[in-house]
Design a protein around this nucleic acid. Sequence first.
RNA 1: GUCCCCAUCGUCUAGUCAGGUCCAGGACAUCGGCCUUUCACGCCGACAACACCGGUUCAAAUCCGGUUGGGGACGCCA
Length: 494
Amino acid sequence: MTETRLRFPPSPTGYLHIGGARTALYNWLYAKKTGGKLILRIEDTDTGRSSAESIKGIIDGLEWLGIDYDEGPYFQTDFEADHIDASEKLLATGAAYKCFCTKEELEAKRQAALAAKKPLGYDRTCRNLSIEVIAAKEAAKIPAVVRFKVPDRCGLLGYDDKIFGRIEATYSEIDDFVIVRSNGKPLYLLCNVVDDIRDRITHIIRGQDHMTNTLKQVLLYEALEAPLPIFGHMPLTLDTKKAKISKRSHGEIVAVQFYRDNGFIPWAFNNFLALLGWSAGNDQEFFSKDELIRDFSLERINKSSAIFNYKKDDPKFITDPKAIYYNEHYLRSMAISELGKMVRKELEAENLWQECYASDKERWYLDTLTLIRDRFHTLKDFTSLGRAYFADDFIIDAKPLEKNVLKFAELQTWLPELAARYEKLNQFTLEETERVAREFAEELSIKPGILINAMRTVVTGQLAGPSMFDIILTIGRETVVRRLRDIEKFFNLV
RNA sequence: GUCCCCAUCGUCUAGUCAGGUCCAGGACAUCGGCCUUUCACGCCGACAACACCGGUUCAAAUCCGGUUGGGGACGCCA
């Protein structure tokens, strides 16, 4: 059995978006599963729209996701000679012909067909020009494109789609499509096939939007006398209005970069993407990398399109709730040392990282993450909601400030008094700190919650969090005492 | 307009190929409850779907036909 070879061929005309990422992921999974290779090929033949920035965005996005490739990146424009050779071969064998129709003529016919509600295809004007006419037009330097001559055959043209099953069409339905521009530059349909043949691609897993291209490309493989690879078309990812998602109409939210910049864990995002349109056939939702590679199959890709369920301007969910759910799951369950590395990057970016967190305070660092990660949703939360564990410049939210602090003016004396008692404590332990707080509340004839919640707010800035006494111990006596004594400033703030 | 594809809770899906075990299971979201010093943690529960019509069959989410709905393609883009 020959090695399986798959490719991911993005056109660098925008950032890597989730649809592209999912396509890359499925190709990667299948390559890994079959012990094959994944090739990255940048299809940059649209020189007007391709950009270096976009190439970088795509490569960075794949790297962040952890989708690695065995060959490439190759650049399609580097193989222009191959594409031209192929077109000349097709011209020579009569599988293609020159077409002298101008863009304007074509556009006029297209508009007319559209208006008359007639089929939109090319009318084959130049398909059977005589040798003399062609020679005359060439002599007159009339620019020409090269069109593929779709064979006049009865019967059906088709291929076996790994996901959709047998796909067929009649030959007459296929347009004589253009393979070389009038400026001599070859076009996608041809380049893509020539490159796949040269790269010995065995499986082409791509979006459903390519289905009609595939029919045309099957013809190209035949004319180029190359073996047909296995095709599989993935249903598209749609938005909540069931429109194809695109960077252009949906913006940042569909760019992979958005998830990197918003504290998502790469594998969690892959796991989410993998399950968007695929399932193992059971209820399993979380897959390790090895499990997903082992269990993934093309046949189990859902035939209907999946909806990326994000709501614009939702105050609670910045993206599809399920994507966040996967992230939370990994945030809470992954090895703490792994999480430690990810959070380190976040802390470094905010200038909150201290070298001792990796040496003598490593135990403290990891224990602190263990304590606070349960309530967090993204890596960003460690430097925002969890900032008080690492620095004094945390923000006090308005809601807890109002509810837990400002409501009780007496706290201005209570908390400093509590601080004094904590300072004198022989044993600064869970039991002792709690005992002291509760006894003090009793003396004051108030509910312990008043003291505890005020402490939480003053010490962490938050309305909610782990058990208060765990927090006290984690943050440490000195800092806790200092923050308790500083309560006055919150009242002065208002 | 022409061609292709698809159709189970709001969303992701299991079940469809090999019809009965499915008055349809899981997850997210939502709502309610419990726990608690707090909570967007955890636990428990509720709500909620086989698009429609016909056919085949003792029996249909499952097979067949049609309708409707949705998506995609129809470029000298990729």
